[in-house]
Design a protein around this nucleic acid. Structure first.
Lengths: 148, 148
DNA sequence: TATTGTTATACTCTATAACTATA
DNA sequence: TATAGTTATAGAGTATAACAATA
């Protein structure tokens, strides 16, 4: 008789680690989101920026960076690209700050991005009943809060 | 329950998204692990590779890559670095495969890595009672399984 | 034909330091 | 002094294509 070799090749000492499973799960969701957003030529970070500006008209790019955990220096090429594509407008508030807003072109794309992000979310949220899903998100927020 | 958004500067439409909180939580844990492992000059990926080899003597670097989700091409510089530091040995099995093992030097470092990884895990696991922690990990495995 | 290890390459993300101009 | 935006740069992580040797 052949030995019932399991489908997993290796013993995995990382399997029970919260940090490891968190990273692997995050990679899976990011890959799914990225492929859904690629159809409208947006990366997850770009879509997040657009949604944040849409919800916070006249915010600055420093505000966005603080909210998303992206450094000011790294916001520059991101915003430049969104403006080059005509998705975001900005107008000076004072001599150093610029108020961001979604352009008309951008508004249409925000709608499409939101649809795709909600479809993506539903795909994974439906793995859990509403209660479990909510507890999961709250647990993740607790982990995130350690970083503050 | 809705969260009070007084302390935050911006309205955050991403706050209730599983994928977003997963990514932010993962970043926090990865940063904590990285800083704990930096004291012994290991990155999280390197420590994971060492623990996997330790648990699976005579495995190949392709096995490791499959288990960790790292492509063969990207395993090459990782393994080269671990061997250059004398942490891993390898010996040919057949003409194309090489069996990996932890060296004596590596074994001492594996012990230290395991201590630091367990301390790191405890710090975050203790945010939850044992039951919730276990459910959290199982939920993350379900999400990860979508990627297969 | 499929697999192991490899080279080369490119793109993204992230991090830091320094500069300017404004407040 | 502190902040907004910027430039330049470097380090990681990740992706693909291709190749040689071997199974």
């Amino acid at each position: 008789m052949s030995s019932p070799e399991i489908s997993v090749g290796l013993a995995d000492p990382l399997d029970s680690l919260l940090g490891y499973q968190l990273r692997r799960a995050s990679t899976v969701m990011m890959a799914d989101l990225a492929s859904n957003l690629a159809e409208i030529a947006l990366r997850p970070t770009e879509a997040s920026i657009l949604l944040l500006i849409d919800a916070n008209p006249a915010c600055t790019q420093s505000d966005i960076g603080r909210s998303l955990g992206i450094q000011r220096a790294n916001m520059v090429p991101l915003m430049a690209n969104l403006m080059k594509r005509g998705l975001v407008d900005r107008s000076p508030v004072d001599g150093r700050s610029q108020a961001l807003s979604i352009s008309e072109t951008g508004a249409a794309l925000v709608v499409e991005a939101r649809v795709r992000m909600e479809r993506h979310e539903s795909r994974f949220q439906q793995l859990f009943d509403p209660d479990s899903g909510e507890r999961l998100i709250e647990a993740l927020k607790q982990i995130r809060a350690v970083g503050d």
